[in-house]
């Protein structure tokens, strides 16, 4: 994220991090998670799943564990789990 001025408490703020899990065989390729991820961490992959849809894949590890994709996915095919933050 880009700031016009770095907040004074940047070092103290705990940012949650998540890891996206995708169950590819359940995906029907509606693209809701890709379109509405607030951090835009997902994109369509080039591969096909068994049903012939392109499941999403993680583009960059910027997930904040907000669970919105999990709530929006009609197929129970995507969810995120809190991840330990590596860097401070």
């Amino acid at each position: 994220m880009k700031y016009w001025r770095v907040p004074l408490d940047t070092g103290e703020i705990q940012v949650t991090r998540g890891r996206v899990h995708i169950i590819e065989e359940r995906c029907k390729g509606c693209g809701y998670c890709i379109e509405y991820c607030p951090r835009e961490v997902l994109q369509f992959s080039r591969k096909f799943n068994k049903k012939g849809y392109h499941p999403p894949e993680v583009k960059e590890e910027e997930c904040l564990n907000c669970h919105y994709c999990e709530l929006l996915c009609p197929e129970f095919a995507i969810f995120s789990i809190a991840a330990e933050k590596a860097e401070s």
């Binding site: 890891r19 996206v20 899990h21 995708i22 169950i23 590819e24 359940r26 029907k28 390729g29 509606c30 049903k51 849809y53 499941p55 894949e57 993680v58 999990e70 009609p74 197929e75 129970f76 095919a77 969810f79 789990i81």
Partner: peptide, 26 residues
């Protein structure tokens, strides 16, 4: 990307998983 995840979806205890995929269209 953990696409071949073995972790179950958090709602799987509330869904009859033997009936998934459901009939709702893409």
């Amino acid at each position: 990307n953990s696409s071949t995840t073995a972790t179950p979806h958090p709602l799987e205890d509330l869904v009859r998983m033997d009936r998934i995929p459901h009939i709702w269209c893409s």
